[in-house]
Design a protein around this nucleic acid. Structure first.
Lengths: 95, 95
DNA sequence: ACAAGTGTAACCTATATGGTTACAGGCTGC
DNA sequence: GCAGCCTGTAACCATATAGGTTACACTTGT
């Protein structure tokens, strides 16, 4: 049912990529070709994973770009669903 | 392999939701609770599907918000992959 | 004490979403 | 012909996001 608060992709990135390799934020950012601030912002849940960042992560960690964007999608969607009740939309489909 | 240029979600929206119900852009926008310009911009591939818009579509057409965002993800990712070669990223993982 | 790593604030930029208004073109019916 | 409706879109606005640089304070290890 996927009803639980999905973690921010930044948490996953830190736990699954940086920590196992004992990478510092500074070093990882340098390798990714982004600023230390950009990576820190993701790791601390302040910024989402952009399509370009997903491609960078896939290159550096030999993973799937789609999986990163999918985690971001789940995270964004979960928060968007919280405002579902406040949107006034008329039903147009059959049922 | 999903290697083909994915269609913009706006095309799909028009063909699968508006046309079957004989909905005008004006009427659909009113029902969705957004401006006619916002919907037109999506239908013509100029704007992506935002999380909030995905929830609106799911309410109006009794569909899954996730499916709309997934289509958007595929579309965005396909374009982001095109710049993969121009990004300088150092490999950090094992292989 | 000093160096390294970290989070983050302040500032800049570019881009994206979406609203309102207004216009021009295409139909359709009278 | 003309009125009415639908459409795309331009111009303008506000807001939010992503990312860059610089600088600062804090913590930790040597």
């Amino acid at each position: 049912m996927k009803m639980h608060n999905p973690p921010h992709p930044g948490e996953v990135l830190r736990q699954l990529c940086l920590e196992p390799l004992n990478l510092t934020v500074t070093d990882a950012a340098r390798s990714l070709g982004v600023s230390r601030k950009a990576l820190s912002s993701i790791l601390n849940g302040r910024t989402g994973i952009s399509p370009e960042m997903a491609v960078r992560l896939s290159m550096a960690f030999n993973t799937s770009a789609e999986s990163w964007l999918n985690q971001q999608l789940q995270y964004d969607l979960w928060h968007a669903e919280k405002s579902r009740k406040s949107l006034h939309v008329a039903r147009l489909s059959a049922a």
